[in-house]
Design a protein around this nucleic acid. Sequence first.
DNA 1: ACTTTATTCAACTAAATGGTTGAATAATTC
DNA 2: GAATTATTCAACCATTTAGTTGAATAAAGT
Lengths: 118, 118
Amino acid sequence: MVKREPDLDLIFKALADPTRRAILASLKAGDQSVSDLAAPHAMSLAGASKHIGVLERAGLLSRERRGRELRCSLEAEALRCAEVWLQSYATLWNKRLDRLDELLMAERAEEAEDANKN
Amino acid sequence: MVKREPDLDLIFKALADPTRRAILASLKAGDQSVSDLAAPHAMSLAGASKHIGVLERAGLLSRERRGRELRCSLEAEALRCAEVWLQSYATLWNKRLDRLDELLMAERAEEAEDANKN
DNA sequence: ACTTTATTCAACTAAATGGTTGAATAATTC
DNA sequence: GAATTATTCAACCATTTAGTTGAATAAAGT
């Protein structure tokens, strides 16, 4: 289990393919084997396996052997990375741009407070 | 001004390059000419111009002639598109954060217990 | 008109990408 | 241990990409 530091090049490159985005969407429903993930796509298993490899190298999913199949699961961290990068442009479509930085900084603290209330 | 429908393939592909992300970041500060945008990058003007072309085709920026230079400006819509797609995964890291909060709360509770003991 | 400035186009190259097929490896079942 | 199932590897091919250089176009200044 090698923790790679997140690389936006790899992440965005991985997301720039409809097959790979579909695979990620599939995984939202829960972990799946390589064959399961490959099944809906009109290509060889080896082809789909390559796509999964790209996603794994980008840190977007992880594979773990489970008997004779490889169980794939979504890795939120890398996606979150992309999202954080995009958020820095949120001021463009967000009116409250003067407060955004504050909000982002205070986010965790607010969540902790909410957790205390509930 | 041809309004293209947003294409996630083009958008993510455009974002998957550090030079292009830097160009977008540059534009956060305001509109700039092609030469201005190209200047910080260690490549020919034609090379940078190509990158700008990629960003334009993805709908991430627009160009407008202003005298003899071309003024480039950020186009929020395409970025927002990518952000919306990513948001559909936000539950993943929200869940993770929730779990993290739980863990932190548990730790805090343990600390409190320890404090009681001492 | 000629020159300078800003930018793109065209042609080329090297490397990466997305796909294929057939053979190889790994774990399971008979 | 032989057969089956799950997955990857290796070699190959076509297309795209990221860069180059040199010529072409567009607008402005002299």
